[in-house]
Simulated assay, not measured.
Amino acid sequence: MRIAVTGAAGRVGRAVAQELVDRGHQVLGIDRVPAASPAVGMEYLTDDLVNLPAQDPRLANLDAVAHLGAYMSWDSEQADAVFSANVTGTHRLIRALEGSRVSRFILASTGEVYPENAPEYQPLDEQHPRRPRTWYGVSKVLAEDLVEFASTHAGWATVVLRFSHTQDPAEVLNPDSFFSGPRFFASRRIGRERAAGRAAVVAALEPASHDDGTLLVAHREDGAPVQMGILATADLAHGVVLALEAGTTAHEVIGLGPDTSADLAQFSRDLAGAAGLRTVDVTFPSDAAPSYTTSNVRAHELLGFSPEVGHEEFVRLAAEAHARR
């Protein structure tokens, strides 16, 4: 197939594009910034989705689209940017594809539409009510609805993939990582806790506030495990590729995550042990630390999806990347 991948300069977009090329597909990468290292053989279009014209002739000969491009922020001051990229951008992309030969459209969504950190029941599945609590979550609800409308309006086979939390083994032990630093490193988490006014948590983190060699071992006041679904980037990318190649019709919503949620306290201890780092135990208010599980049943049944990077392999790869860095 000839497939467009939006957000092709991002970590998931790059991985999806590379796997598609490796599997013999023709790939058009779309991003508002140039790719640092595009997959060999792929074409590239540098443009912002919000600027795409209706019935864009550059997209006329596509068979399928993986819409991964998005703006991620949980800062209410960034709400306009989030809406523009995730809602207006999705709308403009759908309009740009009108009149094309596209028959399949995949949207990257998120468990924040539920949201995962306030589950009404567990394990979370695709039937869970969507009651987001952030502008980012709201933007993805609206993007999902736009794609469902396009399925009916344009007759496309559409798939909404609700991603679990994604980590890359190469970045998880990098304190400067946007995704990993504030979750695993005490020195990076303390700023968020200061802003939230959690004095007890700040006091516990203070001894390691200038130490990038100490990982956070999180506990909850209510005694529940601190746990969440963590999926390696390579597994997530493979799930997107499977959705592009699947034979589903009409509109489907599929949660894409690991088979087993990660215990973050044990995960941090194992990462620290493998990489030779220290740990600090910190107890958080129960609403400030995740505790949820997700269902992967539909991903198994409809896509044949099974994650390959398990806990031990993830820790090994992360420690190797840390040693190289």
Rank of each mutant, 00 (worst) to 15 (best):
residue 1 M to Y: 02
residue 2 R to H: 10
residue 2 R to N: 13
residue 8 A to L: 13
residue 11 R to S: 10
residue 13 G to E: 07
residue 13 G to I: 08
residue 13 G to R: 01
residue 14 R to W: 10
residue 16 V to Q: 06
residue 17 A to K: 06
residue 36 A to R: 07
residue 45 L to F: 11
residue 65 V to C: 02
residue 67 H to Y: 00
residue 68 L to C: 05
residue 71 Y to T: 04
residue 72 M to D: 11
residue 79 A to V: 03
residue 80 D to Y: 05
residue 82 V to T: 00
residue 83 F to A: 10
residue 92 R to G: 02
residue 94 I to Y: 00
residue 100 S to G: 09
residue 109 S to I: 00
residue 110 T to W: 01
residue 115 P to K: 10
residue 116 E to C: 12
residue 117 N to E: 12
residue 117 N to Y: 13
residue 118 A to T: 08
residue 120 E to Y: 04
residue 122 Q to G: 07
residue 125 D to W: 08
residue 126 E to G: 05
residue 127 Q to H: 13
residue 130 R to E: 13
residue 132 P to I: 09
residue 135 W to A: 04
residue 135 W to L: 06
residue 149 F to H: 14
residue 150 A to Q: 06
residue 164 S to A: 15
residue 164 S to Q: 11
residue 169 P to A: 12
residue 175 P to T: 07
residue 177 S to P: 04
residue 193 E to C: 10
residue 194 R to I: 11
residue 197 G to E: 09
residue 202 V to Y: 00
residue 212 D to L: 14
residue 214 T to A: 08
residue 219 H to P: 09
residue 219 H to Y: 15
residue 220 R to W: 06
residue 222 D to N: 15
residue 223 G to Q: 09
residue 225 P to W: 06
residue 226 V to S: 12
residue 235 D to S: 03
residue 236 L to V: 09
residue 242 L to T: 00
residue 243 A to F: 02
residue 247 G to T: 15
residue 250 A to W: 08
residue 253 V to R: 03
residue 253 V to W: 07
residue 254 I to T: 03
residue 262 A to G: 03
residue 277 L to F: 02
residue 281 D to E: 15
residue 288 A to V: 04
residue 291 S to M: 11
residue 291 S to N: 14
residue 300 H to F: 11
residue 301 E to K: 15
residue 312 E to I: 13
residue 325 R to F: 07
